[in-house]
Amino acid sequence: MDTWNYIEYGAWGLSALFGLLIVIDWIKIDTTYSEEMLTSSREGVLEAMTEKHKLEGGDGTF
């Protein structure tokens, strides 16, 4: 048993700690917020606002 063995245990311990931190927050978030809210991200929403390309031929259906 030397320092490195303790470091090994330390690494296991820290791994568990980080894992636990993630899982606790994950459960907290999933129970606090609604699914609709969490999955409301839509691709390209910002682009549609900030960039104006000239649309030629055809129009968006939405």
Partner: peptide, 10 residues
């Protein structure tokens, strides 16, 4: 159609 999100022409 929702997959196509870029404000591009046809």
């Amino acid at each position: 159609a929702d997959q196509f999100t870029m404000p591009w022409p046809r």
